[in-house]
Structure formats: C-alpha cells, structure tokens
Design a protein around this nucleic acid. Structure first.
Lengths: 188, 188
DNA sequence: TGGCTCATGTAAGCCGTTACATGATTTT
DNA sequence: AAAATCATGTAACGGCTTACATGAGCCA
C-alpha cells in the first residue's frame, strides 16, 4: 500500500539514524546522501507533516529558548514502513542525468576542439568531486554502511575521471575513437 | 539568453543528427541517450511546439497516406542555439538518484541478510543492464561519439557490477566492511 | 482478425528547486 | 556589530511520468 514517497524514504531512514528536526534532516542529508539522494526544505517540511498525518512519525514541540522547534520520531508504523521499504528490494530507482555525456554524444556536431573542451571540463569536474569526497572520508570512517556508500562515490568518481582522462588523451593525439580490431582486421 | 530546457537540448541534437518527427525523436532517444537523458511524448510534443514558436525549429506537414505527420528541422537560430549549448561547457548537470545505494547507506538498520539481499539485487541489476548494452554495442559501432557514450555506459555498468560483487563477497564471508589499516595499525 | 508500428496529442498529478518570509541564538 | 547558524514554513514555477484518447497502415 501507500508506498513511501522518495523524500519520505530518506527522512524515515535519517530519523532512524538519529536526526530529529527538519533542519537537522536537511543538514545530515546534505553531508551524506545528497550526492545520490537529496532533499530540500521545500520537500522536507511538507513531507514531515504528511508523514505525521499518516502516523509514520510523531512530533513533539521542543523549543530552544523562545524559538519554536519540533522534534520528530518514528512511530511503530513508521519503523515498519522503513523496514518494509528497505526489504522490498525490487525495482529500485536508478536515474542518471548527465549533461557532459550528452554533450559527448553530440561530439560529431561540434569542432574537435570543442568536443575536447567538454571532455576536459568533465574530467576536471570529476577530479573536484573526488577531492571533496576524500576530504570528508576521514570523518566518515566511523560508521559501516554510510562509509561504504561514500566509498562507492569515491570509486565512481575515480573511474569516471580516468575514463574521461583516457578519452582526453586520445582526442589530443588525434587517435581514432573507435577500435575496430575485434570484429574486422585481426582474428580473435 | 532563454537557455534551452533539458528536453530541448536532446531534441535539437537529435534533429541535427537526422531525426524528423516527434515519434522518431522518441524512438531515437529511447535506443541511445535514454540511459542518461530520456524524454517522453508528454515532453517531446509540447516542447516541439514551444521550439517552433521561438523559431528554433521549423515544421512541415508531411502526411503519410491519410495520417497527419509533421517533419521538423533546425532553423539557423536553432543551429546556433544547439552550438551555443554544446560549447558553453560550464555547470553541466550531473544528477544521480540511486535507490540501491540509499538502501545500502541504511544497511545498519536491517538484518545482515537483508543488506546482502539488496547488494545482490543491485549486482544483478547492473549485470542485466550490462547485457543489454552489449547487445546493442555491435550496431552502434558505426558512429564515433554516440558509440563512445555507449562505451561509457558499458564501463560504468562493469565497474558498478564489480563493486557490488566485491561487497557481496565480503558480506557473505562476514568480513568487516571497513578496513582501518591505513590510519591506525600499520605504517604507510 | 488481431497485433504491431507509426503518429500526435492532452490532462492530472507528483516531485523538486528556488525564492521569499521570518526570527532567535550563537559566534566572531 | 555583523555574520553565521538554528529553525520553520509557503508560493510559484519547472519538469517529468503516466494514463488517456485517437486513428491509420501493415503484416501474419
């Protein structure tokens, strides 16, 4: 039934890991799953209200001084919904929107110098993302699975950077992009 | 100004590569950029009308028999817009939504057997995607840059499959997920 | 005759970002 | 005194998917 909305999934999970306020959820998500599963205030606060109405979380007013502040917690129903989602492993989303790759795809349409510029920019992008991930790697080394997810990100950035660096070298050298060896020229 | 909408980018590019009708655009996108840049009919047809109103494409009625049919072509302005986008290489989108990775991130929350089931499902997912890409690889071997983008997809699927296979083995063996060698126990 | 492909569109609804709006508390 | 952080929310808009609606032409 009523399967969890995308933002609900990360909210319930983060509440389980100890986040309490909407603000804290945002901060936690930003420094951890943001790379592959983000959430904005415009999603978080309305979603918390929806989850409350459906009885998946319970809210408690816990003001700090004179500023209003609401702490959330999973209900038993919320725990069950989280577990249900984590266990129902089929049809997991896997969406990519990669503009650099789209530009590469249309590489025949532009002068070689522009195609090369795109590849170079992409390689640099992955290098910077990698540097950022490596910075946060030390602190993240405490927990098991979240650290594992970070390792995935690091590995992915490394692999992508290397792939683009290779294409970059081939374009700079004016080498053919397609190697037609396997099917035509030589046996095996 | 008026920078191209996401769907406009792939439409203009595909028109440049020879697609003519909305239907053909959809088909072409589905077998090529879909993996990292998709588009549905609900986007394509309205977007074509918008592009026409803005003078980036021109439409010609070319019915087949008695069924209405519209062929589109880039205008000079459309060519310029496409070139402009392909050349302006900064701030390229790179969005990932990976539910398997999110489930992995919350792996501490579920029993080890469920975490393993998720990893296994993910490895299988990448294996299937890889098989699919390899099937279309032969026909795609003609063009330069589109083939290169396919190679990226294949490489990415291979890398991801291998990464998950490795985690799978470690979980099956009950091995620790984090290796704390570098910073603590041994020098270097 | 039934199913597939070609062909075009609309409508409802979800999801998400960005900007706006407000204000207290803490740190520099 | 100013800036950053903690804290909560709404409104407008953009983008996308899915379902619905229609129908011709072709092939087995």
């Amino acid at each position: 039934m009523s399967s969890l909305s995308p933002t609900a999934r990360v909210i319930l999970g983060m509440l389980k890991l100890g986040a309490r306020t909407g603000y804290e959820l945002k901060k936690t998500i930003d420094i951890s799953t943001r790379f592959f599963w983000g959430a904005s205030f415009g999603q978080i606060y309305p979603e918390l209200k929806r989850l409350r109405k459906e009885g998946l979380v319970k809210a408690k007013s816990e003001p700090r001084g004179r500023i209003k502040r609401t702490e959330y917690e999973l209900t038993r129903k919320g725990e069950a919904a989280l577990l249900g989602w984590l266990t129902d492993v089929d049809n997991a989303m896997y969406d990519i929107r990669d503009e650099g790759l789209l530009r590469l795809f249309f590489g025949d349409v532009v002068p070689p110098a522009d195609a090369l510029a795109n590849v170079r920019a992409r390689r640099e992008f992955f290098e910077q993302a990698l540097a950022h991930f490596r910075e946060i790697e030390q602190e993240a080394r405490v927990t098991d699975f979240p650290y594992l997810a970070l390792r995935y990100g690091i590995g992915l950035m490394e692999w992508s950077r290397d792939w683009y660096a290779d294409v970059e070298r081939r374009l700079e050298a004016g080498q053919p992009l397609i190697r037609r060896t396997a099917s035509a020229s030589s046996p095996e």
